[in-house]
Simulated assay, not measured.
Amino acid sequence: MTPHNASGPSRWSDLDRPPLNATALRRGLLHEGGLWTSVDVVQRTGSTNSDLVARAGAAEEGAVLVAEEQTAGRGRLDRRWTAPPRSGLFFSVLLRPAEVPLERWGWLPLLTGVAVATGLSRAAGVDTALKWPNDLLVTVGGEERKAGGILAERAGEDGVVVGVGLNVTLRADELPVPQAGSLELADAVSTDRDTLLRSVLRSLETWYDRWRAAGGDPVTSTLQETYAAGCATLGRQVRAELPGDRALVGEAVAIDGDGRLVVATAEGTREAVGAGDIVHLRPA
């Protein structure tokens, strides 16, 4: 049982969930010529994305904002994302990819997915799959579960804030929905959030630098093929819930050069989906 004090739960009461070490994170991530320029850890906020978008005008590229608890975290379509304090990684980064044409900025959430999956594979020993466009999946008891999500938002004329929410130590009785998962439930070899965050941000820096150096070209940077290789949506029967109450059912066959999901229908047509909710249909 979690001990309580007179004024409610103590922030030190859950010893399995130590606080992040901001000093050690800065020491490990901030270096001359590197992407990351500041790392701030706050105890509690509504949404790290909203906070960083609001301060983007005065912030340098590479600002990182991490929250121990998010009370109004948002996913796509304004879905809420909540979790107990210190049970996950909830962070946002400010990017200004001036070298990349605007029409290629749509790759940023997919790039972040690749970077997070790569970083978690190294640091947590967990095979993380990507559900197009921005969900992070882990396997729990032989079943695919959503353990995280990514949200990118414009910040002024020249910036993008990319936010990541990831369930790390959520236990089965704490899951917001039965279909959710966490690194702990997926038998991660490590759930040390300092280690995981450093690994993910280093991976993100590597991928972002590579993509930026290629002018955002998804082929030259190998982003397109790497995303496709780790995408659990490809080869599946899917239903795409499209804007205007339209649905498209078919096989997800490719990720195109704009990062869109190409769906082949039973009627023999192919349609590239740029926005929408994707449901993985179970095999018949």
Rank of each mutant, 00 (worst) to 15 (best):
1 M>T: 15
2 T>M: 13
3 P>V: 07
5 N>R: 14
5 N>H: 12
7 S>L: 13
7 S>R: 13
7 S>F: 03
7 S>P: 00
8 G>R: 04
9 P>T: 07
10 S>M: 10
15 L>E: 15
18 P>N: 04
18 P>F: 01
20 L>Q: 08
21 N>S: 14
22 A>E: 15
23 T>A: 15
25 L>F: 05
26 R>L: 02
31 H>F: 09
32 E>P: 02
33 G>E: 12
34 G>A: 15
39 V>H: 04
41 V>T: 06
44 R>L: 10
45 T>L: 11
45 T>S: 06
48 T>N: 11
49 N>R: 09
50 S>I: 06
57 G>M: 08
59 A>Q: 06
60 E>R: 12
67 A>W: 00
68 E>N: 08
68 E>A: 12
69 E>M: 12
69 E>F: 04
70 Q>F: 09
71 T>N: 12
73 G>R: 07
74 R>E: 15
75 G>H: 05
79 R>K: 14
79 R>A: 14
82 T>C: 08
84 P>E: 03
84 P>L: 04
84 P>D: 02
85 P>F: 02
96 R>G: 06
96 R>F: 01
97 P>R: 05
99 E>S: 14
107 W>Y: 10
113 G>Y: 01
115 A>S: 13
116 V>I: 04
116 V>Y: 03
117 A>F: 01
119 G>M: 09
120 L>W: 04
121 S>K: 06
121 S>G: 13
122 R>F: 02
128 T>R: 00
130 L>I: 04
131 K>G: 14
134 N>Q: 08
135 D>C: 11
136 L>Y: 05
137 L>S: 01
140 V>N: 08
141 G>E: 12
141 G>M: 04
141 G>Q: 05
141 G>L: 08
149 G>Q: 03
152 A>T: 13
156 G>N: 07
158 D>S: 11
165 G>C: 08
170 L>G: 10
170 L>K: 02
172 A>N: 03
173 D>K: 12
176 P>S: 06
176 P>R: 04
178 P>I: 06
181 G>I: 00
182 S>G: 11
183 L>G: 02
185 L>V: 14
187 D>F: 07
191 T>Y: 07
191 T>D: 14
192 D>A: 10
201 L>N: 05
201 L>V: 11
206 T>W: 09
208 Y>P: 01
209 D>A: 14
210 R>F: 00
216 G>I: 04
217 D>A: 13
217 D>E: 15
221 S>M: 14
223 L>H: 05
223 L>M: 06
224 Q>F: 03
227 Y>T: 00
228 A>W: 02
231 C>F: 09
232 A>D: 12
233 T>H: 09
234 L>Y: 05
236 R>I: 04
237 Q>S: 12
237 Q>C: 11
239 R>H: 01
240 A>H: 05
240 A>K: 06
246 R>T: 10
247 A>M: 03
248 L>G: 05
250 G>R: 00
251 E>W: 00
254 A>W: 06
257 G>P: 01
259 G>R: 01
262 V>M: 10
262 V>C: 10
263 V>A: 01
264 A>K: 11
266 A>M: 07
268 G>F: 09
271 E>Q: 11
273 V>W: 09
277 D>V: 05
278 I>E: 01
279 V>E: 15
279 V>A: 14
280 H>L: 15
